[in-house]
Nucleic acid binder design. Structure first.
Lengths: 210, 210
DNA sequence: TGTACATCAGTGAACGCGCGTTCACTGATGTAC
DNA sequence: TGTACATCAGTGAACGCGCGTTCACTGATGTAC
């Protein structure tokens, strides 16, 4: 099945881009889109660019995706999956517990720093009108997994309400760090970032000394 | 000097937009730009749109700004100023101290929620290559003020290094909340947000119970 | 008070660009007889 | 084994769009004599 002989672009062989060989164009589009969005510094990815990179006409994309949003959603979904994987790897690597929790947070920030455009795509494309559309479901569920992963890592002695607040605090903290780094307001200083994510926050101290 | 009689667009009186009267077009552009960006839900503001809203040709903008980036920078600067003002008002309203600190953080989040496009413009347009350009200086300094305001509000008994970490923590926390709200991942539930910003974080508890 | 002139903030038409999307089409593939 | 045909994933040209920016221009304003 996976013969690599019958190239589609025999006619337009001038392109030096790696030509797409018959097989799964949908997959090739997503792969090339991911490569583009990992590489690119701009935070705008166009359908034509993905098609161009894949060595295929823009119209060909419409055989596999109803519109641009659907293509972007596929990329966002893949990004979401990778972000989750990076976090889980980090948690496991740190041996769980508090260190694992911190490692997971740092991994979140590092993922953003390493994949700026992808990170932004994930969070801007995931939940627009959310639950109605079926294709959004899988992305939505990846996002839900991420939230639940955070909650699972919370200290066990907290009440449900406390866990919710604490999880949101943790998420917002790493998300804010990520965004500030991407916008250039905060340096990629991992020693500092680890301290911020893992360190004690001043709030408790301030309260107790009030 | 501020005669309001000599309208510039006598010829094209078909427009029902409030016509621009001679005076300070630069100011009018910024004002209308601010109104547009406060209103708009999209996070893209075009030079032509601002000119249109002001009732003036797109080319007229170039009498007052060298290019689009300069216009956007002016808007970002104004946004920065307003954000700072909102925070200082909130701090003062809460009477300083810990409550003031929390109020300042909540004001930051609320400002973002109320002015999504403006908030994003501020943070994306402020620091690109930063210090080299003179017009960037004023925006840069407004940003510096904001950071210093945060640091000033930190508990006094911390060391310089601790303050730096703590300030970054606080900033990242509210910034992350803001972004997550703008992307629709977190609800505009101000009771919850106040708890997240003002509440004790789980980190310290987790560490002490480790 | 009147005339000649420089200044300069605006106009509006045009430019080239890249975009998302549509459309009639082509040519290879696989199946039915 | 050979022929007729349906399927369908691709092409490439075209569409309309809004954008940022440039350009020669116009017409009001203020000044010099």
């Amino acid at each position: 099945m996976q013969s690599n002989a019958n190239s589609v672009n025999i006619g337009s062989a001038t392109s030096d881009k790696k030509p797409y060989h018959h097989g799964d164009l949908r997959l090739a589009l997503v792969e090339n889109g991911m490569r583009l969005i990992e590489t690119s510094d701009a935070n705008h990815l166009s359908l034509r660019e993905v098609a161009r990179e894949t060595g295929v006409s823009a119209a060909a994309v419409y055989r596999h995706f109803p519109d641009k949003a659907a293509l972007m959603l596929a990329l966002a979904n893949e990004g979401m999956v990778r972000l989750g994987a990076a976090q889980r790897t980090a948690t496991a690597g740190a041996g769980g517990g508090w260190d694992g929790f911190v490692a997971s947070g740092v991994a979140y920030v590092r993922f953003a720093a390493d994949n700026p455009a992808l990170f932004r795509l994930v969070f801007s494309y995931v939940p627009p009108i959310s639950l109605l559309d079926a294709s959004l479901e899988q992305v939505g569920s990846a996002m839900r997994d991420l939230r639940e992963d955070i909650q699972k890592l919370m200290p066990a002695h907290l009440t449900e309400a406390e866990r919710k607040i604490a999880a949101l605090h943790a998420w917002a903290l790493v998300h804010g760090l990520a965004e500030l780094i991407l916008d250039g307001h905060v340096a990629r200083d991992w020693a500092v970032i680890e301290k911020v994510v893992g360190g004690a926050t001043p709030q408790l101290e301030a309260r107790s000394s009030e």
